[in-house]
Nucleic acid binder design. Structure first.
Lengths: 338, 338
DNA sequence: TATTTAAAGTAAAACGATTTGTATGCTCGA
DNA sequence: TCGAGCATACAAATCGTTTTACTTTAAATA
C-alpha cells in the first residue's frame, strides 16, 4: 500500500484535485462547506502532500544547508552544537530540513562549495564560524541566500556576531574591579577583526583605570591550545609576574592555566584568569573558569530567523548579540589592599 | 538565467533527452560516439540534473534523517559531534543529505516521529543514543530503514554498539594491575542492558583476582553529574575508604572526582579514578582522567554504511566496536607493595 | 424575466527528470 | 536481394503537486 495522493483525497471528497490543493494551502475560492469536507478527510487520513512534487513545481528544496569545518579544533565542537540547538529550535516554526555539510568535502569540485549548494539543493545556507572569501564569492555568484555566524569576513552578508570589544572590556574591567593592575594579554591576531575588537576592549578598560601594560605580557599570536601554553610560558619567564591573565578565548585560558599549574603556581592565589566564550568545559576545569558568556544558542535562533527572511526576500540586517554577561567562577582572586 | 535542463543539453548535443539521461546514469544503449559528445557538453556546462524531479520520479528523497535528543545533558554533545563527524565523512562516498532532527519536536504530532519521517521525506534514519520504544514501533509500522547507535533497545534493528562489558573489564583490570584491591563502583542502572554489561565486566575482573567488593562502595543508581557526586559522598562516608573508584562513564568520574577534591583528598594519591568513554573534557580535568576509549567517530562511519545497506536492501548486521582501548592518564596511582 | 457579475469548481498544462515501448538504420546470413 | 536480428535513438507516459484559464452555477441587478 503506497501513500495517498491528492487525487485519492479528491476522489474521496468528490471534488477535483485543485480544490484539495487550495484547501491544504489555505487559498480562497472554496466554499466553507466543501472546505470543511476536504479538511475532515485530510485529517482523518493523515494526508501529507508529497514533498518531492511540491519541490519540483515550486522550485524550492525546503532545505537549509548548515556548513561546518570539521577540520577545526575539537573545542569548536562545543560552539557548533549550541548553535545547532538554537537553529533547530527556531526551525520548528518553519519546517525546513536542516542539512549538514562539511566544507572540506568541496575538494571534489572547483567552486569550493559543498555539494548540496553545487546541486542547487538548498534554499539558503548558514555558515558557522570563519569562511573563506573564495567560498563567499561562489555564493555571491550563485545568488544563494546566506547568513554568517560569528564570521569576521570583509564581505557583506547578513551576519550574527558577538561584540568581542564589549566582551573584552567587561572581562578586563572585572579583573580591575577585583583589584588587579598587572594584567597579561593572550589573544590571536589570526582574524584581524576579532583581534582589533578584543584589543580595543582590553585597552579601553585598562586605560580607564590607568592600568599597567607590559610588552612582556602581550601575546597576540596564540592560535590554539598549544600556542597559548607557550605564550604563557613566555609570560612567566618575564622578570615581573602579572597578577592576572586576560585570555581572548576560554580555550586559551584553559591551556594557559595548565601551563601555570605545571609551573607549580596556584590559581587563583598566584595568578588569576579570565576568558571569553563560556564553553562547556570551562565549568569543569580546576578551578572553574570565570568568563564572559557568548550566547551561541541565541546566535543559532537568530541565524535561522535571518536566513528565512533572506529566503523570503525580506530584509535581513546584521545582528550583534549581547556580549557582556560575566560568569563568575573560581579563577579570579580578589586582591585586598590593606 | 535559470538552470539548464536535460532538454537543453539534449538540444545542444543534437540528441533526445533520453540519451542524455542514459549517459548521465551510465546506462547501456548509447553509441560511444554520442556518449562522448554528450559527456563533453555535460562537463563543459557543469550540468547537474535537477534533484527535485529525480526525487519525484525515483520516489527517493536522498535524505537521511539523523535524530538526536536535544533535551539530554550537555555531555552528550561531545558524543554527538564525534558521531556526526564520522557520519559525514563516510557520507562523502554516498552523497545523501544528512538532515538533523530533534526528537522533542514530535510533540506536535501523535506518532512520536520527527516531522521529516512523518512526511516520508527520508530514505532512512539513524538514531543517536537511547530511543523510546514508542518511536521504534512507529518506525517499524512505516517500514523506514533505521539504524541505532549505542542504543540499548529491546527491538531488533541493525545497530552499532560498544561492548561495555569488555570496557568495564579492561578498566577494572587496569586498576587491579596497578595494585588496587579496594575498588568502589559507580554506575547507572537506568538502562538495564548497559548496566548488566558494565557490572558483568567489573565483577569478572574483580573475581579473577579475588578482589574485595563492599556493599558500601556499590552505587548503581547514578544518572547524571549530581547523583554521581552524591554517590561519591556516600562512599566516602563509609567506614573504610576504597583506594580506587571505577565509574561507568567519564561524566560520573569527573563529578565524583570533584567530590573527592571537595573533601580535601588528593587524586590519585588518596583515591584513583577510571572512567569509560574518553569524552573530550577528560583530557582537561585535573588530573587528566584515565579511561577506556569508546570510538564514537567509528560508530558514525559504520552507522552510515549500515543505513545505506539497509536502504539498498542489502543485509545489515549488528556491529560491536572494539571497546578495550585503555587511555592512561593521571588519575590512577600505582600501588607498590614493598 | 433577462442579463450581468461574482463565486465555486474543474480540466489541463506545467515542473524536469526516468523509463517503457516503438521506430529507425545497419549488419549479417541465407 | 530479402528478412532477421541487433544496436541506437526517440516519443511519450509517468511521478504528484500547483496554477492558469476556463466552465458552470448561483445570486444580484435592472
Amino acid at each position: 500500500m503506497s501513500r495517498l495522493t491528492i487525487k485519492d483525497i479528491a476522489k474521496m471528497a468528490g471534488v477535483s484535485p485543485t480544490v484539495v490543493s487550495f484547501v491544504i494551502n489555505g487559498k480562497e475560492g472554496v466554499s466553507p462547506k466543501t472546505r470543511k469536507k476536504v479538511e475532515e478527510i485530510v485529517s482523518s487520513t493523515n494526508f501529507i502532500p508529497n514533498l518531492s512534487s511540491r519541490r519540483l513545481v515550486l522550485n524550492k528544496s525546503f532545505n537549509i544547508s548548515v556548513v561546518i569545518k570539521s577540520t577545526s579544533n575539537p573545542f569548536n565542537d562545543f560552539f557548533y552544537f549550541e548553535i545547532i540547538q538554537g537553529l533547530m529550535e527556531k526551525n520548528k516554526e518553519y519546517g525546513y530540513n536542516i542539512v549538514f555539510s562539511d566544507l572540506s568535502d568541496s575538494s571534489s569540485n572547483s567552486s569550493f562549495l559543498p555539494d548540496i549548494l553545487e546541486r542547487g539543493d538548498a534554499d539558503g545556507v548558514i555558515f558557522l564560524q570563519q569562511v573563506d572569501d573564495l567560498v563567499l564569492n561562489s555564493i555571491n555568484k550563485r545568488n544563494i541566500p546566506a547568513v554568517l555566524i560569528d564570521s569576521h569576513s570583509t564581505q557583506t552578508f547578513p551576519s550574527i556576531k558577538a561584540d568581542y570589544s564589549i566582551a573584552a572590556y567587561t572581562a578586563t574591567k572585572h579583573l580591575i574591579d577585583m583589584g588587579h593592575n598587572d594584567i597579561a594579554f593572550i589573544s590571536s591576531n589570526f582574524l584581524p577583526s576579532f583581534y582589533s575588537q578584543v584589543f580595543a576592549g582590553f585597552s579601553k578598560a585598562l586605560g580607564e583605570k590607568g592600568g599597567f601594560l607590559s610588552p612582556d605580557w602581550m601575546c597576540i599570536d596564540a592560535i590554539d591550545g598549544e600556542s597559548a601554553y607557550d605564550a604563557m610560558t613566555k609570560i612567566l619567564s618575564s622578570p615581573r609576574r602579572p597578577t592576572a591573565v586576560f585570555c581572548a578565548t576560554d580555550m586559551f585560558a584553559i591551556s594557559a592555566m595548565k601551563c601555570v599549574k605545571d609551573h607549580g603556581l596556584k590559581i587563583p592565589e598566584d595568578v588569576s584568569f579570565i576568558g571569553i566564550d563560556d564553553i562547556i568545559i570551562s565549568k569543569y576545569v580546576e578551578p572553574a573558569l570565570t568568563t564572559i558568556k557568548i550566547d551561541k544558542k541565541a546566535m543559532g535562533t537568530i541565524a535561522m530567523e535571518l536566513i528565512v527572511n533572506k529566503i523570503e526576500g525580506k530584509p535581513a540586517e546584521n545582528i550583534i548579540v549581547p556580549s557582556d554577561c560575566l560568569i563568575r567562577r573560581g579563577s579570579v582572586k580578589k586582591i585586598e589592599y590593606i
